[in-house]
Design a protein around this nucleic acid. Structure first.
Lengths: 351, 351
DNA sequence: ATGAAAGCGCTAACAA
DNA sequence: TTGTTAGCGCTTTCAT
């Protein structure tokens, strides 16, 4: 055993010969919605099973022009938001008969376009960019090739691209109102990567909320959506005399907020929420772990995934071509990392 | 704009016409290692760029019989070990010019075989099963089709399948020796899913280590590699008078160990490591977070990924057909969740 | 080194 | 309903 091995490939022609019918008859039996008699179907299926035949998806795609493959580009798998979203996306797409070809953009900083091209070479029927920007060149190329693109949890000005996000503006504003209502007056912000639309919108909404309340931003640092950078940012804001410290901080995502909590409690010895309230964004699974118990804005991942799949399917199967921009609101989940406004002691969400 | 859309597909024939050469010449220019003159290459490339031509990977695969796609089946993306491994695997495979077609097995309990078939229909050049078992039927089928299969972080008796794991037996034994050396005598185990080879081996090694030290297993519960089940298992072992509780517990993976730590500290009010030592397995990123600071056996993910890719490439590109079983040892990372043996106060790893 | 011609395995008109 | 006939876009002999 384990010696030389012959790659036995059973084709529709083999099945046809075995069953004594034409090759196209075999094809029809395996094509949903084609017209075949019950007799023919049974006869062909019997031979197919006997020979262990399965249609070659590549050959099928070559002629039909549809691969039933969706390319997915994803960047930060260390932020749990993405694995969770990826899992849901994959399941939703599988339910529609599609599979996903994944490309990790994490390592490959420069030549993202280069490898994205490779994905397009596989004639993907659609493309989901999770938190990754796309060059105008490539967007144009996808558009020309008729490949719909959906930006997931990221938006971009390019008119050709659809985008699905949570309502970052509203989320940021909700956090501001919540903190103000909780009596905080020295409120700081730890930004994510400043090139990201998510950061821009969360910050804009947050500042707007503060402004409406007549409270200035107390301080600000940048964490770049990175765990280590977030730790540094925390030191920058809190490693000073108690009187000079913020009494609340909004962190642009949970991944960073967890780093913030760890530094506050275990490095600087600052109590949360007694000395400072911390609020995050995403509601990743870890946010609910009792060691963190993080108050955070929930991203409506299921609905975001549903919207993404719908846009893709509308475009692929219905020919709908208008790019769409969808922002779905999510609740602020009240947990133990932030002091609450009076009367909200037992509430689960805000407002 | 955004009106009717024509899918413009530029073929090698178009390029050939534009450049005034034969279609096969174009093909050669895009085939690494084919013999083409510099003149021809430049001429063709110029036309190709002018028309925006890219070879159709599907057509190429159809004739060459090689898709440069590796199918990956993965189950539990909520256990951070898998996203991290997936990211590394994807990067390593990309470096070899391969892409990954992902299938999530999480939701789909029953019909895994069914959808795995669909992946095979895409003529994948190889298959990686991350912590997922494979039916003998399917294994035989992959073998017949010449598709190499590598089980990642899971092993199975089937002789046709290669498997890459950490050295679970040794890891379990190391934990036992470490806990015994630390002076613990009432040592418990929280099992993962009992059908998993990882659990079987970790437990076997652990029991062997205890036996060698002449110490019986104090108690045992099952957590099924699941967060909520692990919480229940913790209550089962610890929700009793202090004198009846274990003084140490080995948890079959970090994902569960984190749940264990949360319940011990925040629900039952038991101190770690003063009242009980906790040791996990995997060394996921969260294990190093200061709120957990979990002592755990590190899975040598990089080396496991490298081995996986090497097995695949040997088989695909070199025709090597012997299935391989590889178990790579990893160190026990000493952190704050377990009391240490005397003299090991500052050690980073055990022994 | 280049071109002509023959398919890879399949779907999709078109007849019958 | 079924069989016949063209290709899908490409690689790969085989001549030249």
């Amino acid at each position: 055993m384990s010696g030389k091995m012959v790659k036995e490939t059973v084709t529709s022609t083999d099945v046809a010969r075995h069953a004594g019918v034409s090759q196209s008859a075999v094809s029809r039996v395996f094509t949903p919605g084609a017209s075949v008699s019950t007799t023919m179907r049974e006869r062909v299926m019997k031979s197919a099973e006997a020979l262990g035949y399965r249609p070659n998806a590549l050959a099928r795609s070559l002629i039909s022009g549809r691969s039933r493959i969706i390319g997915v580009v994803v960047a930060y798998l260390d932020n749990q938001f993405y694995p969770v979203a990826l899992e849901k996306l994959s399941n939703a797409l599988q339910a529609q008969g599609y599979h996903i070809l994944v490309f990790m953009a994490s390592q490959t900083r420069g030549n993202l376009d280069h490898v994205l091209q490779e994905i397009l070479d596989y004639q993907v029927d659609g493309l989901v960019m999770a938190s990754v920007a796309m060059s105008s060149d490539l967007a144009a190329q996808c558009d020309a090739a008729g490949v719909p693109v959906v930006l997931f949890n990221r938006s971009q000005d390019d008119q050709r691209l659809s985008a699905v996000t949570s309502d970052n503006l509203r989320g940021g504003r909700d956090v501001a109102r919540f903190l103000v209502a909780g009596g905080h007056r020295r409120i700081a912000y730890i930004a994510g990567w400043e090139g990201a639309s998510t950061n821009r919108d969360r910050e804009a909404g947050f500042l707007k909320g503060l402004e409406e309340a007549g409270i200035p931003l107390f301080d600000r640092a940048v964490g770049d959506y990175d765990f280590e950078h977030a730790k540094q940012a925390t030191r920058q804001l809190f490693d000073r005399p108690a009187g000079d410290r913020p009494d609340a901080v909004f962190v642009a995502n949970d991944h960073m907020a967890i780093a913030v909590l760890d530094v506050l409690r275990h490095v600087l010895g600052i109590r949360v929420p007694e000395d400072v309230s911390v609020v995050g964004y995403d509601d990743v699974p870890e946010a609910a772990w009792s060691s963190y118990d993080l108050t955070t804005v929930r991203q409506p991942t299921n609905r975001m995934v549903d919207a993404t799949v719908r846009i893709l399917m509308d475009r692929i199967e219905e020919g709908q071509v208008m790019p769409q921009r969808i922002a779905i609101g999510g609740p602020l989940m009240l947990r133990g990392s932030a002091r609450r406004p009076d009367g909200q002691e037992d509430a689960e969400v805000w407002p």
